[in-house]
């Protein structure tokens, strides 16, 4: 393992939503701060900085990760996905995002990025989840606005639409 100088800044390179990025970080810099402050990827939000609220959840090398519990220097060479990478294009939303909008699954939108990342990751692996499974998955996220039900509905609806459209295209 590389030994890093505490007071020095170290280059960190990784893939962010499919694009190569590079910037320098002190060893103590959190990945959440690095994404937001060094790379300007402010879609990932910081709510507690101790891993409970889930707002900063991102995907690192195909694993759901709390960016606030990860150091920037740890992800050198990794593949990272954040909320900025979910939509197919800047003026279009993904099926999951559209389901959120239809179901009023967000109010202030501060916790939403983390929830979207968890769901996007989970639904790609579990295309036909039950409500209980979604509730279990999202129990690692805190939302103070919605009372959660619209989020659960949006997730189930997105899964249902994705499955039915696949069936249609298969047919």
């Amino acid at each position: 393992m590389n030994r890093l100088e505490a007071d020095a800044r170290h280059p960190v390179r990784f893939t962010l939503n499919g694009k190569a990025v590079e910037a320098e970080a002190e060893p103590r810099t959190l990945l959440s701060d690095f994404l937001r402050q060094q790379l300007g990827a402010t879609g990932t939000h910081v709510g507690c900085e101790h891993g409970v609220c889930g707002a900063c959840t991102i995907v690192v090398d195909d694993m759901l990760t709390r960016a606030c519990l990860t150091l920037a220097v740890q992800v050198d060479g990794c593949d990272i996905r954040t909320v900025e990478g979910i939509a197919p294009s800047p003026d279009r939303l993904s099926a999951l995002q559209r389901a959120f909008r239809r179901n009023h699954a967000l109010q202030c939108g501060f916790c939403t990025a983390g929830i979207l990342m968890s769901l996007d990751h989970y639904l790609s692996r579990h295309p036909a989840p039950t409500e209980e499974e979604i509730r279990e998955l999202l129990s690692g996220h805190l939302c103070r606005c919605t009372g959660y039900t619209p989020i659960i509905r949006a997730a189930l609806e997105a899964a249902r639409l994705a499955t039915s459209s696949e069936e249609t295209s298969d047919a």
Binding site: R36, A41, T42, G43, T44, H45, V46, T82, V83, E84, I86, A87, P90, L93, Q97, F100, R101, R102, H104, L106, C108, G109, F110, T112, A113, L116
Partner: peptide
């Protein structure tokens, strides 16, 4: 009706104070 606020918030383009 769908909210005008949502598209930006859902795609990480919210403008909160620390953004």
């Amino acid at each position: 009706i769908e909210r005008v606020e949502d598209a930006g918030l859902l795609s990480g383009r919210g403008r909160f104070i620390d953004d």
